[in-house]
Amino acid sequence: MTPTATRKPRRGGAAADLLLAVSLAALAVGATGCGDAGERRRDGPLSVVATTGMVADAAARIGAGRVRVVGLMGPGVDPHLYKASEGDVRRLQEADLVLYNGLHLEARMGEVLGHLGADRPTRDVASAVATDDLRAVPGFSGAHDPHIWFDVRLWRDAVVAVGEALAAVDPDGAAEYRRHLDAYRAELDSLDAWVRRRTATVPEPARVLATAHDAFGYFGRAYGFEIRALQGISTATEAGTRDVQDLAAFLADRRVPAVFVESSVPPRTVEALQAAVCARGHEVRIGGSLYSDALGDPDGPAATYVGMVRANVMTIVEALGGAKEAP
C-alpha cells in the first residue's frame, strides 16, 4: 500500500482572503464616516460636547433650550486618566462647540482637544479665570492646579467662558445666553455665601481636609481648610509608604475627626490611611465620600454642580464637627 496523503495540504489561503475582505470592508466604512464633518446644522438645538460633568452642567444651564449637551465623562469617571474612545472623538468632531476644563485636567485628551481646536470651536472654561487666581503646583513651574470648580467664586468666573463661547457660535441666541448666565452667576453667588456660612461652623482644630488626591486646594484656600492628600494633583501619581506614614502621623497628632473617600478614586487608598492613623491610637472615621472630579449619579442630589457642592460641603462639615443645619 503506497502512502497517500489523506488530506489536502492546508494553505493559509482561505484565512488570508477573509482577512483581506474584512480589512477592505472596514476601510470602506471608515471612509464614508468622515464625509460630513464640516457641515453645521442650524435647524434644531446646538450640539455641545463637554468633557467633565461640571462643564456639561454649566453648558446645560446657560444654553437651556437652545443647546443639546453631551457630557463625555460620567459620574465617577476620573478626568486625569480618561482616554477618549473612538465614539468620543466622533462626537467631538461632529459637535458645534466643544467645552472643556483646561489646565491639563483632561490630561489624556490633550492631543485630541488640541487637534480639534484647529477646525472646531473649542473653549476651555479655565481661560476665563484670571491667572493670578490660580494655584501654582509646587515643583512644576508654569503648571496650575486644574480643580478650579471647588472655589465657587472661581467657577462663577469660569462659566462666563461658556456664555461667551455659546454666543460666539450662535449669535442669534446671545441675548438669551446672557440672561441665563447672569441668573446662574447669581445662583452661584448665593451658593458661595451658603458655603461660607456652613463651613464657618467647623471648629478651628478640625479644619483639615484629608483626601486621596490633592483636588481640594482651591476649596481649602477659599474656605479656610488645611488640605492634605496622599497623591498629588493628578491621580496618576502613586503614593509611597513614607507619604502614608507622614500623613497618618499628621492626622493622629492633630486628632482630625475624619478622612474622606473620593468618588472617582478607589476607597482602598483612604482605608489604608485610616488603618494607619488608628494604629497610632487615634480613631479617625471615614467621613463620607466626596465628589472630587465628577458629579454624582444623574438621579441623585449631586447630579448638578450646585447639588454636588452642597452635598460635598454637608458631608465635610458634618464629619468634621460642624453644625447640622437643615440645608
Binding site: 465623562m73 460620567g74 459620574p75 465617577g76 469617571v77 476620573d78 486618566l81 480618561y82 482616554k83 474612545s85 496622599l230 491621580t235 502613586e238 503614593a239 509611597g240 509608604t241 507619604d243 502614608v244 473620593e262 468618588s263 472617582s264 478614586v265 478607589p266 476607597p267 482602598r268 487608598t269 482605608e271 489604608a272 490611611l273 488603618a275 465628577a294 454624582g296 449619579d297 444623574p298 441623585g300
Partner: peptide, 28 residues
C-alpha cells in the same frame, strides 16, 4: 473598561488602579 466608564455609574472608580496597584496602601 472604556465601556464601563461610559456607564452612568458612580461606583466604578478605580478598576484600572486595581491593576496598577498601590503597595503603600495595603490593608491587613
Amino acid at each position: 473598561l472604556t465601556w464601563i466608564q461610559r456607564r452612568p455609574d458612580a461606583s466604578q472608580a478605580g478598576l484600572d488602579r486595581f491593576l496598577f496597584g498601590q503597595a503603600a496602601t495595603l490593608l491587613t
